[in-house]
């Protein structure tokens, strides 16, 4: 008998009770190959991501308040990013950048994080292939094969990556991070794979101005695709031709 089928069928009842209580385990198998999800649009747990989807973000800087760091705190909480008080070596997956045009005095504030490029330079330069782009456009570090050479940090135009400078403890189960490897915004890939949205987007919508819109750029019916089609938006350092998945409105 197929070992997989056997595993699933014989342990169903026991495991369902057990696992249903554990946060982060959204999928509950009810029979071999059949899985129920709490999120309607999610892909099946056993299914690979495809390039039919291109996850992206649209940030409306007009709604982003100067001094508000709700997105940053949400990210830190979600991914277990702490501070040691050594700002120069502490990782930052998302940060707020204040812009001021010296010629006009115009001021803008916006969140900056991994821009999830379609042509990511970090992926190009990574010697081991640890930096990679998922089929759905999310740029990640496979920490299992990252040797910590930091070439990706040299190559990233957005200063989006951080190196873990010291040993970590009590990491979040869904966000493994460790000393000697490079990390950056994962677009909360663990949430996306369950049909959720990134923590920063959620926090911005719930607690702040709702400046961040997340969605599938490839789906013409999605809110984000409609918005980028209707309103002018721009990619940071578009001159490099990297086609980032994060777009900005109002700058």
């Amino acid at each position: 008998m197929n070992i997989d089928t056997e595993n699933r069928e014989s342990t169903n009842t026991a495991r369902r009770n057990f696992l249903a209580g554990i946060a982060g385990m959204a999928g509950v198998s009810i029979a071999s190959g059949v899985t129920l999800f709490s999120f309607a649009e999610a892909k099946e747990a056993g299914e690979a991501v495809t390039s039919k989807v291109r996850w992206g973000m649209l940030i409306d800087t007009n709604k982003c308040e100067d001094g508000c760091t709700k997105c940053v705190s949400a990210c830190n909480k979600e991914n277990g990013i702490g501070t040691t008080g050594r700002a120069e070596t502490d990782p930052q997956w998302i940060r707020k950048v204040q812009l001021r045009d010296p010629k006009t005095g115009n001021q803008t504030s916006l969140p900056m994080m991994c821009q999830h490029c379609a042509e990511p330079p970090c992926v190009d330069v990574c010697p081991t292939g640890a930096s990679f782009k998922r089929a759905d456009g999310i740029v990640l570090v496979d920490k299992h094969s990252c040797i910590g050479c930091r070439y990706c940090m040299m190559a990233c135009p957005y200063k989006a990556r951080s190196f873990v400078h010291e040993a970590l403890e009590d990491q979040k189960s869904h966000a493994p991070r460790g000393k000697g490897t490079v990390e950056s915004c994962t677009l909360c890939v663990h949430r996306i794979d369950k049909g959720g949205i990134p923590a920063c987007v959620e926090a911005c919508a719930d607690e702040a101005g709702g400046a961040m819109l997340f969605g599938d750029l490839n789906d013409p019916k999605s809110e984000i695709a409609k918005r980028v089609a209707k309103y002018a938006s721009r990619q940071i350092r578009a001159d490099l031709g990297l086609n980032p998945g994060v777009r900005y409105q109002g700058i």
């Binding site: 198998s29 690979a48 991501v49």
Partner: peptide, 15 residues
């Protein structure tokens, strides 16, 4: 899981 986003619980370290 890392590369294809396949997140079944079977053989997952979390499980």
């Amino acid at each position: 899981t890392v590369h294809e986003g396949i997140r079944g619980k079977q053989y997952s370290l979390k499980a």
